[in-house]
Simulated assay, not measured.
Amino acid sequence: MLLLAALLALAPAVQGEELLRVSSQKASLKILLEAAGELNNLPYRIEFASFGAAAPTAEALAAGAVDIGTLGDAPFVFAAGAGAPLKTVGVVRVNVTQTAVAIVVNQDSPLRDAASLKGRKITTTRGSIGHYLALAALRGAGLTGKDVQFIFLQPAESRGLLANGEADAWATWDPYTSMSQIEGGTRVLVSGEGLFAGNMLLVANDAAIRDKPALLADFLQRLARAYAWANANEPAFSAIQARYSGLPVDIHSRSNRYSQPHRVPIDAGVIADVQRTADLYRAEGLISQPFDATGRFAPQFNPEHSPQ
Rank of each mutant, 00 (worst) to 15 (best):
L2P: 11
Q15D: 13
V22F: 02
A27V: 08
K30H: 15
I31P: 02
I31V: 14
L42H: 01
L42G: 03
Y44K: 09
I46D: 04
E47G: 14
A49M: 12
S50G: 09
A53V: 09
A54E: 12
P56Q: 05
T57M: 14
V66R: 04
D67I: 03
G72K: 08
F78E: 04
A84G: 02
K87P: 07
V94K: 01
V96R: 00
A100T: 09
A102F: 05
N106M: 11
S109D: 08
P110Q: 12
D113T: 01
D113F: 01
D113W: 02
L117P: 01
R120W: 02
I122G: 03
I122Y: 04
T124V: 11
T125A: 14
S128Y: 04
G130K: 04
H131S: 05
A136W: 00
G140F: 08
G142C: 07
G142V: 09
L143A: 06
G145C: 13
D147Q: 11
I151F: 10
R159C: 08
G160H: 08
E166F: 14
T172D: 04
T172S: 09
W173H: 14
S180L: 13
E183R: 12
G184L: 08
G185V: 04
V188H: 08
E193H: 03
E193L: 05
L201M: 07
L202M: 15
D206T: 13
R210D: 04
P213D: 07
A214N: 05
L216I: 15
D218P: 03
F219K: 00
Q221K: 07
R222M: 06
R225W: 03
A230I: 00
A232P: 09
A242M: 07
Y244S: 14
S245G: 10
S245W: 02
L247W: 12
D250Q: 13
R254M: 15
S255T: 13
S255R: 10
Q260A: 08
H262T: 10
I266C: 10
I266W: 00
V274P: 04
Q275H: 06
R276K: 15
G285E: 06
G285K: 02
L286F: 11
S288G: 15
Q289R: 15
F291Y: 15
D292H: 13
T294H: 14
P299S: 11
Q300Y: 02
Q308N: 13
